[in-house]
Design a protein around this nucleic acid. Sequence first.
DNA 1: CTGAAAGCGCTTACAG
DNA 2: CTGAAAGCGCTTACAG
Lengths: 336, 336
Amino acid sequence: MTTIYDIAKATGFSAPTISKALNGTGHLLEKTRKLILEKAQEMGYEPNSAARSLATKRTYLIGIIYDDPSMQRGFRHPLFARILNKFKESVENSGYDIIFLSCHTKLSYRAHAAFRSVEGIVIINGESVLHSELEELGKIGIPCVSTNGVIPGICTIIGDNVASGYKAAQYLVSKGHRKIGFLSAPGDDFIMSAQERYEGFCKYMRENGISVDPTYFEKCDSWRVESGKKGFEALYKRHPDMTAVFAVSDLFALGVMEYAEQHGIKIPEQLSIIGFDDDLIANYTSPRLTTFRQDADGIATLAADLLLEHIVGLPVPEKLIRLPTQFIERDSVISI
Amino acid sequence: MTTIYDIAKATGFSAPTISKALNGTGHLLEKTRKLILEKAQEMGYEPNSAARSLATKRTYLIGIIYDDPSMQRGFRHPLFARILNKFKESVENSGYDIIFLSCHTKLSYRAHAAFRSVEGIVIINGESVLHSELEELGKIGIPCVSTNGVIPGICTIIGDNVASGYKAAQYLVSKGHRKIGFLSAPGDDFIMSAQERYEGFCKYMRENGISVDPTYFEKCDSWRVESGKKGFEALYKRHPDMTAVFAVSDLFALGVMEYAEQHGIKIPEQLSIIGFDDDLIANYTSPRLTTFRQDADGIATLAADLLLEHIVGLPVPEKLIRLPTQFIERDSVISI
DNA sequence: CTGAAAGCGCTTACAG
DNA sequence: CTGAAAGCGCTTACAG
């Protein structure tokens, strides 16, 4: 590893001068700068981030919270992986690297963030059980944004769940459906996407004088396929005359299809389905799945921009920003 | 940010003593250690990794090369995302963090690795076009493993492609198929998985006296669904009497299914298919797709273990390690 | 058992 | 325009 001092020795200039030449700061003779740059190149010099960070107090590191306990698909999560992809790309374009913050017995998110001196944090998919940890994050003064749960004091950018639920209800009703099952998912005061979709669903019904029977609602106990299947089974046993179901996840829709196939329920002839997320798979089931697509790129870009602005000291709204989702009509819903 | 000096001042001990207490090194009075630890806790002390790295020359950072130009699914890649998940988990258990190495006009993999002082590098999914970059990595002396392409001087752990191709041929032939299309993918001297699968395929045929007609082979021009579809179209136009096709990727199989549906080809009645990767989707197409599953966890764990051993100075074999794949028989192949 | 000194590689005022 | 000095937060020999 060549250091700045090696270059100093080789060129006869002092370390500060080398530093200035390398960073393009200060006023140096063009000739000096050129000579130093050439020598640095020749000697294969690369700056050392640890030393630089120590001196400048800047690490160009963004901490990522990405834990997927509920769906357990890790980096293959249909929404959060897309957000992560784009977020990473965005911050890298500004010279930042990302680092994953972990949280276990020997290390908290906060401790990890402090250890690596990250300049900002994005909560892409947080362990819901760790509220207190996450709220703590909101307090330590380090810039933070969230693309998932809503945490006091942290700016959150998410898809418009209420509008999506509203749209689903509207669409199904327009197709003549009235006995509509709702397959929901775990959530709490922090992660509310499923609840909000139900809220929007009920809102449409209410506005249009259609009563909502709470026994048509079923909350699955995880975001996994099997949970969707199990949830649908419960729903179906209560209401075999149900004509449609809105699942808050494509994976649940898969579970429904699986159950339907095993029990001779024809889709969409006997049962229409709407999913959520537009997983790649939604385009290849049969029938192809009608679903909602969240604006992952929009969410990620906005989150990155706001976080970066926050880092350089610009004011950031501490509020909830909702981006529209896109309704994707395919073949899993029919008119009755 | 409380530093070691703050604790020194607060307790009356010197900085080195604080350091020893915090790290559990040296010989200190139990009483002293306890007092310091309590004070540190109370003051919310967290070590600073940049300062520590500078002093110890250890960063506990692993550089990840993960670029997916060919399939363009980023973190949702059916194989590499699974490897990344498990690899991350493995190294984190040993106290390491991962950081993604990027490679563009203003930064090479090598420069990025040097800047962040990573202690080791894993090439999970390298830009194939950047051979020279990757080979350079093999030379700079920093511990390196690969789970994808084969690079001179770098230990590589991959699935057993030859055996998989062999198995596919054997299975198809046992079901009576003789006119078998082979849908291959881009590759080169570095990334050879598709070629190797064809090699194994031909090997079985050769060993069993079945001639292989090269016009039944088609190389798609990316790993994407559309390329698979296009590739199959070419194949099908040459050989409408083909009874089966082996696609080196589930995504290609999806393309085949799409083409088949649009052209009234019944699957599996008129055309049997085998895919590769066991993407989630393979279990939900209709018919459900027969495919191969790579041992991503095994590959990742082995890669992590070898890399970590290499980092602490243990000898690591500079060779190619092949892990068996699992053949998953579902419903997309019939006997004829 | 504890501490004074030096150093890791870089940058930032401050002189000249 | 260039450099001497000090400091970022931590650790490692080395004394005592």
